[in-house]
Design a protein around this nucleic acid. Structure first.
Lengths: 236, 236
DNA sequence: TCACCTTGAATTGCATCCAATCGTAGCGGG
DNA sequence: CCCGCTACGATTGGATGCAATTCAAGGTGA
């Protein structure tokens, strides 16, 4: 096992970082919980050294906080943190959409339009209301949403913008938007509509509209999340 | 020596990170140069272990790149990277200015206006053209510029925005704007004027103007830097 | 009963050690 | 003279060991 590692060269640390990030994103590692070096090291079959380096990176990324002599804990953002992150996200992705409207190529436009159908499909599938259909709708929506935003950001052609947005995303739990949409067909249809309108504005090379719609899109998600979180915390 | 360390608790790694960042920012460690773990470790009187963790953090911060089995190198951003970073910076700080216009308090407003005189002073001092006066002008300008931007960002009240901007700043060499201004009295006066206009817009609670002026301010700095860099590289 | 102290398991922080890798200088064959 | 190969120094990558710290449980005395 240690031998296989010599193949992977160094990417050991980065692969641990990526994997931990995924596990945190997927909820496998709970928000606010402690991450034990020894445990992670055993899971990956390595010593604590690379694990510690990975945790340091996650700290710099804003994913965990390291408390002296206590260890690393997954950061638990407050509702205000999340709301503010969505505001920044709107500004950044809005600008990405503006640039995308200017710079996007036909190929990427096709990819963008390809997601339209997926968003529709997810919305309709959620109508079935069965556990299974919802899970599948969730999967499709995630796929489409990821592709949609990534495509726009890459199409913007601004790598610094890309990095800033990515860093921001790492600081907020994944899947919040989907949770806020809550499988509500009405909301999902609206969501699909918003995406389609943004695509259209980009295709029409209407930079300002693409930006404004994206900001609005982010703000809507933010409001849903805030509302939903308030409901949950007040009803529990 | 190792005993003294037990006092400092853990902040060892973070203090190394901060210090290295400063040294890179000040040009003490050159852009594009390699950072040798052993050397840094000796300088701080520690082993390589905490140094490596610090370097991992700097990697995550986008300050250095770590090449497998070769070490850490201070990232050398291309002119395009810098231009794009300034564009993003304009968008982010523009939004910060907008929020600041909404949320700033009297105390912070005073701080902001306090910088007006400093910018003026720096501009006039640069007129002397002596080596000494320039160095002092540089110092005053840096002080004022740091205070100005920090105040606006903090006054925005959005911590995620603050973090995003800070992260962005770490990715571009410091002092570029000053270099681009090049001690030119005319440019420095313009620069002072721009700052004053932004302050005024914020005080007047004119959110959109504050934002637009800030974006324009960033764009102007970007253009100066691009021009100046082009000149330097073509004339050498 | 309760405050306070002690003790020990769990865990982290750092140092040290060894293996793996890279770049280069030197060497020999063509 | 040049190309390729090898050996070696410099350096990094990861494992291990040990001291320091934290937290909690148990014990002691008033």
């Amino acid at each position: 096992m240690a031998q296989a590692r010599t193949q992977e060269q160094d990417q050991l640390v980065s692969s641990i970082v990526d994997d931990l990030q995924d596990r945190i994103g997927d909820g496998d590692i709970k928000i606010g919980s402690w991450i034990r070096q020894e445990r992670i090291a055993r899971e990956y079959g390595v010593s604590r050294t690379p694990v510690r380096e990975a945790l340091r990176q996650l700290e710099a990324l804003g994913v965990v906080e390291i408390v002296a002599n206590r260890g690393a804990r997954v950061i638990l953002p407050s509702l205000q943190d999340i709301a503010q992150a969505f505001e920044v996200r709107g500004v950044l992705e809005g600008h990405a959409a503006l640039l995308a409207a200017r710079n996007i190529g036909q190929k990427e436009l096709d990819v963008l339009h390809g997601t339209d159908a997926l968003f529709q499909e997810a919305a309709e599938m959620a109508g079935a209301q069965t556990e299974e259909a919802l899970a599948q709708a969730r999967h499709i929506w995630f796929q489409a949403n990821g592709t949609f935003h990534t495509t726009i950001i890459v199409a913007s052609g601004n790598r610094q913008l890309e990095m800033s947005i990515e860093a921001l995303h790492h600081r907020i739990p994944r899947g919040l938007t989907w949770t806020a949409l809550g499988g509500d067909v009405r909301l999902l249809k609206d969501n699909a509509e918003e995406h389609a309108r943004i695509s259209a504005a980009i295709e029409a090379r209407d930079e300002e509209t693409a930006r404004d719609l994206t900001i609005e899109h982010s703000r809507r998600a933010q409001e849903l999340i805030v509302m939903r979180t308030r409901d949950q915390t007040s009803s529990s």
